[in-house]
Every structure is written in C-alpha cells, then in structure tokens.
Design a protein around this nucleic acid. Structure first.
Length: 290
DNA sequence: AGCCAGGCCCAAC
DNA sequence: GTTGGGCATGGC
C-alpha cells in the first residue's frame, strides 16, 4: 500500500515512477477523462470525479480522500505494479519495442470497471475516439446518476446494466450510437439477466474463460473482447488488434496487415503474459507516429 | 466531398 | 473456418 497524505480535499503521493498522465489518459484505453489547461486531467470512474496532476514524482489527486485513494485510485491507477521491470523485459533484444516504450514511457493500464469497459468498447467499434467520448458522455448524462458538481459541471456515474437493459432504441437515439444501439440493448439485457454474476465471474476467471463469456454477448468480437479483457479484467496476456495495431505491426515487425493470426502468435511467443502492456506501448506509438 | 474510424453480424462459400 | 458486404454516424 502506498503512503498517501491528506490535503485540503486532495491526496498526494510521493515517489511515483513510470507515470505520465498524458500517456495514461490519451492512449485509447479510457474515454471519460479530459485534459485541463494546466495539463492535469479530470475524469470520472467508480462513481467519483477527480482531477489528477503529476509532476516529478509527485501525484496529486484532487477531490479525493486518503480512504478513496486506497479504495479506488491506487488500484485504478495500478500503482502497485512495477512498470520499470515490465518495460525492461519487453525492450530486451527488441529495438522496435524500445522506440515505442521510450515514446509512451509513462503508460499505465488502468484497472477499470468491467461493465463500463464492456459498454465502452462495444461503442468503440468502427468509430473514432472523439466520437466515442461524446457517445459515452451522453449515455452517462441521460442514464447515469448525478454524483455532484465538480469544477463547475454536474457529473454523472456510468449507468449499470439494469438501467440500460430497460431502454428502447428511442430512449437511446439521442446518444447517437448508430447500429450499435441494439448491441448495447442486447448485451445489457444479457448481463442484467443474472444480476451481473456472469460478468463478475468472467472477470475473476482465467483469460480464455472470460473471453468465451464476452464473445457470447452481442456486439463483442475478438478485438472488443481483447480490450475488455485487458482494460476491464486485468488479463494482461490479451493483445487486441485494431487498424492501428495492424499498421504498426506491419511497419515494425514486417507483417502483412491482413495477417492477424501471425501477429497474435508473435505476441504470444515474444510478449507472453506481458502482451497487453506491449500492445499499449505499440498502439500509443502508432497513434502519434504513423 | 469523401475516406476512415480501437469491428461485428450474417450469409455464402 | 474463412471471406465479404452491409452497417450508422461524425471527425477530419
């Protein structure tokens, strides 16, 4: 457990390494964080809105208590993990990976809520990040719970499966989900049908079992499942491949962009249980350099 | 204006 | 089991 110091409605943590808020919140793993003028980031997770600032080893979380820090943010930000060690392992004998790791050296894989991650990545398919963010914010405004005002704006929680399961296409129309509306409806109904037990079991199960459950839901194929496994279920052997990953795997490792199987096999062999971390360094590098 | 986006479903091989 | 067309919408 990290030592955290209570300030005026804020918490500070010292000696945080391998951490960069721009890398973390702008690497496509989360959609509810916005960059402020001063370079800090404001966002909502697990029903709380905070502002996170990082400078030279000092992490400041505003609108949070030490209790919140240990209950939510320490885990969410994955502060217990040795990213230095992970990077060293990945970079060893791989100059391409070294470039990617240097570029996104402060990336951390957030430990997000499984349900929010599931819905978010169903929405993400065949879309782009600015639009995905807008859809999710609208979804929360319309169907989440108001959780108080922060920095001059009312904030909303992410709506649970029971709430979304009761909605019609007409209800969802203002969210502008396009054809994904029926995926959200069907998956919400399926998850709510057992009170979320199936999803919770999947999150606690080994990767392949979790993937089987996710693939049984409507609107979740291999790529979306991979993202949910990685960002919402702590399955770090997952290596989701989207169009950007195809491009970077072609550019850096010489694959044909159509050779998904080859890419997956390569990740399994060379990155193994660290495939998810490798994927994030490569994805972030691709997004800003290709 | 037109192409593309953190793809999936479904039908046809 | 693989492949290809269709899909809603908006960012750029």
């Amino acid at each position: 457990m990290r030592e955290a110091v209570q300030g005026k409605n804020s918490v500070t943590v010292n000696d945080v390494r391998d951490f960069n808020t721009d890398h973390i919140f702008d690497c496509g793993q989360c959609f509810r964080w916005e960059r402020e003028e001063d370079g800090s980031w404001t966002g909502t997770a697990f029903g709380r809105t905070v502002n996170i600032k990082y400078e030279k080893g000092l992490l400041t979380i505003d609108n949070a208590s030490v209790k919140d820090f240990h209950e939510i943010w320490e885990g969410y930000l994955d502060l217990g993990r040795d990213y230095g060690g992970i990077k060293k392992t990945l970079v060893d004998g791989d100059p391409a990976m070294e470039r990617a790791v240097d570029f996104g050296s402060g990336i951390r894989i957030l430990r997000q809520d499984p349900w929010e991650t599931t819905v978010s990545f169903i929405i993400s398919q065949n879309s782009n990040i600015p639009r995905i963010k807008k859809c999710i914010e609208k979804l929360c405004e319309l169907f989440g719970e108001p959780i108080g005002e922060y920095r001059g704006r009312q904030r909303y929680s992410f709506p649970g499966p029971e709430r979304l399961a009761g909605l019609s296409r007409e209800d969802l129309a203002p969210v502008r989900l396009g054809y994904r509306d029926k995926y959200i409806m069907k998956t919400s109904q399926a998850v709510a049908s057992d009170g979320g037990a199936g999803l919770a079991e999947a999150a606690a199960a080994p990767g392949p079992d979790a993937e089987k459950y996710l693939r049984s839901l409507t609107g979740i194929g291999p790529k979306v499942a991979g993202c949910i496994l990685l960002f919402g279920m702590n399955k770090y052997g997952s290596f989701p491949i989207d169009v950007w990953m195809k491009k970077i795997m072609a550019a850096m490792y010489g694959f044909e962009e159509s050779d998904l199987k080859g890419m997956s096999a390569y990740a399994r062999e060379h990155f193994g249980s660290l495939s998810g971390f490798a994927q994030q360094y490569l994805y972030y590098y691709a997004r800003f350099n290709l």
